[in-house]
């Protein structure tokens, strides 16, 4: 297990190096100069030249790359062209918001998606199965911004139960400690803040979870149906196990393996920032940060966020592989 982990972690280095080279050259191929973009239509050439000089954009690209790569080894991701702040600090400031949302959305999606899948599989072509099929279709095909707007209108405007957007009531002033709003509220004993953070989390979570729950529900149903026709299920039934035991211990456990891959992939995607959801709900996450950076041609921020995403993506896939080992003894054996 340890050597498997080590091998996978070592493989990270070439992956990240390749990502770095690709991103570094790609961002410079996007037409448009950061100084021109940042200063807007009113600027003069003199102002633009001065800013280019300040941002050191006039250096040859290979020198810029060497400086950047050298900085990375020292943990220096460069500074944002827009704000002048260190990129790593800026990413770490926003990462908790994205993590909070992604983790909650994934948990909610599992909480709804898996039972729906199991129940539909045990009652194929029942009313329940048809109903969940429609739910899944809507969940998968409705664009995030539309679902977000509908939920905002229903729960915030008409019912008044939940806030429209944001991460916490603006009237509550709390200095972040971990950056996870709910956790910070709990740690400091500020229950009002924690409760407010929960309320603000509900709608964006619902939007993100809807898609994943729908995908997961259909996925679990289909693999489950396959698994339930396997020989070992018949054997389990034959030896007199209760229906629940057959479904949950033998059926579900075996159909969860592919589902975990789906969850892992989707979770990693969410870490890459749900740009639309974060924008509509004014959620201060990393996806929006990257989107703004692309608009502004903020090279160091685009590079930094892409590297962090790649790292998180690869780490998630390693985690998925490890989970495979936990759930499946055959895989565990191979890992050794």
């Amino acid at each position: 297990m340890a050597s498997f982990l080590l091998r996978r972690l070592l493989a990270l280095i070439p992956v990240l190096a390749l990502v770095l080279v690709i991103v570094f050259s790609l961002v410079r191929l996007i037409p448009g100069d950061p100084a021109v973009t940042l200063l807007g239509p009113g600027a003069t050439d003199q102002q633009i030249a001065a800013l280019r000089d300040q941002m050191r954009l006039d250096e040859p690209v290979y020198l810029q790359f060497l400086n950047y790569a050298g900085g990375l080894f020292r943990g220096d991701f460069g500074t944002s062209l827009k704000s002048g702040a260190p990129v790593l600090d800026e990413i770490l400031l926003r990462l908790p918001a994205t993590l909070e949302l992604s983790i909650c959305a994934t948990l909610v999606a599992i909480l709804f998606g898996v039972p729906i899948g199991v129940l539909s599989a045990t009652r194929p072509n029942s009313m329940f199965d048809h109903a969940t099929r429609i739910f899944s279709l809507v969940g998968v095909s409705m664009p995030a911004f539309l679902l977000a707007l509908i939920l905002q209108l229903i729960f915030a405007t008409y019912l008044g139960w939940l806030p429209v957007s944001g991460r916490m009531s603006p009237y509550i002033v709390m200095q972040p400690i971990t950056g996870f709003a709910i956790l910070d509220g709990l740690i400091t004993g500020n229950w009002q803040a924690a409760w407010s953070a929960v309320q603000y989390l509900i709608l964006p979570t619902a939007v993100l979870a809807a898609f994943l729950a729908a995908t997961l529900g259909r996925f679990v149903r289909n693999t489950m149906l396959e698994v339930m026709s396997e020989d070992f299920i018949r054997t389990a039934r034959a030896k007199g196990l209760s229906k629940a035991q057959v479904v949950l211990e033998h059926g579900l456990r075996n159909s969860l393996l592919p589902a975990i891959t789906v969850i892992g992939l989707k979770f990693a995607e969410m870490l890459g920032g749900a740009i639309l959801t974060e924008t509509i709900f004014a959620w201060p996450g990393i996806g929006r940060f990257m989107f703004e950076a692309i608009k502004n041609r903020d090279y160091p921020v685009i590079q930094g966020t892409t590297l962090v995403f790649s790292l998180l993506f690869v780490l998630t896939s390693i985690l998925v592989d490890l989970l495979y080992g936990v759930l499946d003894p055959r895989v565990r054996k191979r890992m050794k």
Binding site: P163, V164, S165, P284, R288
Partner: peptide
């Protein structure tokens, strides 16, 4: 408050947020 989306800003204003 930073609210990047125009329709969200409008909803917030109508709701008193």
């Amino acid at each position: 408050r930073v609210i990047p989306d125009a329709s969200t800003r409008r909803l917030e204003l109508e709701n008193g947020g």
